[in-house]
Amino acid sequence: MKTDIARIPPPSDDKRWRIIDTTMRRYGYDSHCLIETLHSVQEAFGSLDDQAMHYISATLGVPLSQIYGVATFYHLFTLKPREAHHTCVICVGTSCHIKGGATILSAIEKTFRVKAGQTTADGTLYLQTARCLGSCGLAPVVVLNEETLSKANQNNVIQRIQEIIRHDA
């Protein structure tokens, strides 16, 4: 365990920092737990902001630029919070691709005027692609919020998204 680093207090009294602290403590504040720590921030706060990265840097003794480098290397981590009401993930893994995942993607992009990785102008829909959700037997697969649509086609996906959006209104 590292003892030479003076423990600094968390950036705010948000209770979620305790989860982050627990993670770092579990690994003895060793710099090698950087990725585990980032996971726990991402899970608790939904994204990694500057404040969190400063705190981790000071606590684990990892240089700021290194944290930024790690945070942007791995696709799972996001630096900006996402603010969309609904998320639509389209699998573009090989099986889904072969079975028409790309067609669904472009149809949604066209219908809702949004590009993969972006949110619609009105903030209702965040469109994302995934590199294989591992449900290849049911390809093509689309995940709408928590709901999995298997053997999907463009019509039923678009219809389902419209239903969900209409439900909000």
Binding site: S31, I35, E36, V62, V70, F73, Y74, L76
Partner: peptide, 25 residues
């Protein structure tokens, strides 16, 4: 257990080791 974070290259053994050590893969 150590978790990846969305990087295919981390299946390569030296990248995997870098990732377990908390670095870029």
């Amino acid at each position: 257990v150590r978790l990846g974070a969305g990087a295919f290259v981390c299946g390569e053994e030296t990248a995997l080791i870098a990732s377990i050590e908390g670095r870029r893969g």
